[in-house]
Nucleic acid binder design. Structure first.
Lengths: 222, 222
DNA sequence: CTGCATCCGGGCCGATACTG
DNA sequence: CAGTATCGGCCCGGATGCAG
């Protein structure tokens, strides 16, 4: 990428990770080292040459290292982008109320929602195990000791199992969609959905900054 | 910008602010409403049509509003990008040790450094007033009550006055450059530079994540 | 003079094909 | 599986024009 040529920390950061797809590559690697093919699968829409370009560029900048045998991983400095990625994710939460539509979804992206929605320890949070079937692979959401984890795979004794389209399942977990609405949107609930409220001891719907007004569907301005 | 087409908060955030220059426009507006010409002056290198494009796009997304008479300002949602911008700035701090070189600099960009370096209240921090002459306009750094502020303009009774190139002055304030080195780099110090250590009660040099290795100057890979 | 719109050259992006 | 090669098209960037 062409440098902004500004002696400013933000500009220099964007010189490194401001390229298209760069932060999404980091998003994938924040979940652990990945092979090239796994990255391709987790980044639907990227062209293979672009992925190769980004990986080289991020490697040159010291964000990514290539382990022996084409395993890519973040450097310690690169892992510092965790705060950036999740700050952006939290900021964009109002945008997630728009339905997924034709957007792609991968089950491991759920972890960004879990971090954004349930970050930190809240001792008033109840214990709960939710198995989530949305996307290619099942995921397990575990609330224990006031903290919420998300792991890949199934769980032995889930309190609730949710299956359905990603936006409706996520809305149900976040408390933004009622149980009835979620079922109407195609979510199959196995277990007592009311227990989901244990995840949100504030009882209120998660606070939301003033949502952006939807862009007019009336096409481009004259 | 072409949408990533992913139902993921990060991807949707980047659909809105992932365009080139977009976050730098936000950086400027985080300091308050600005006219078109002021934005141009604060964004050296941007083409005027690109600035117009970005402002329209950010307006359509609900990040920016255009006040009466072409004053641009952030919406409340847009101001939520504060965390994102400063997270990126903090992450890029190791990149600032590379000298400014031919990079542009604007004095109001100093505020990002102040936020990154001295964020939060530390009661052990001593009081101090530093007048900084670097860039077009003088800035005043005020440490009071354990908190560090930065304002545009001069201060009546500065303890220290610093004048010189931005990288050396900033290095001196951050404690990464010694007084002697700073003067050798062209910084003129009026007052007792040792008092600058009052800003950093930890006494140690600001903690730094593992710095990125410099990209090899040996040109592009074969 | 400010606040854009228009008009190109060049480079990055994106899809497909291809190779070890 | 892990990329490289190629090519059209769009976005970016710089210069210029123009209206209030």
């Amino acid at each position: 990428m062409r440098s902004y040529g500004q002696y400013c920390a933000l500009a220099r950061a964007l010189d490194v990770v401001g390229d298209r797809w760069a932060l999404l590559v980091v998003r994938e690697l924040l979940q652990g080292p990945r092979r090239y093919g796994e990255l391709l699968a987790g980044l639907p829409g990227i062209a293979t040459n672009l992925l190769a370009d980004r990986l080289r560029s991020l490697e040159d900048s010291g964000v990514v290292t290539r382990d022996q045998g084409a395993e890519y991983a973040l450097t310690p400095w690169g892992e510092g982008l965790h705060d950036v990625v999740y700050a952006l994710g939290r900021w964009a939460r109002p945008l997630m109320s728009r339905p997924a539509g034709t957007d792609e979804f991968r089950s491991h992206w759920l972890s960004s929602f879990v971090v954004a929605l349930f970050e930190g320890v809240d001792p008033r949070r109840g214990d709960l195990a939710v198995e989530i079937h949305v996307g290619e692979r099942p995921m397990a959401l575990i609330s224990s000791g006031g903290r919420v984890h998300l792991t890949a795979g199934t769980t032995s004794t889930p309190d609730i199992t949710l299956t359905g389209p990603p936006d409706a399942v996520i809305g149900l977990i976040a408390g933004a969609v009622s149980r009835g609405d979620a079922e109407h949107l195609g979510v199959v609930i196995d277990g007592d959905a009311r227990a989901l409220s244990r995840l949100r001891p504030d009882s209120a719907v998660s606070p939301r900054l003033s949502p952006p007004r939807q862009p007019e569907a009336s096409g481009k301005r004259p």
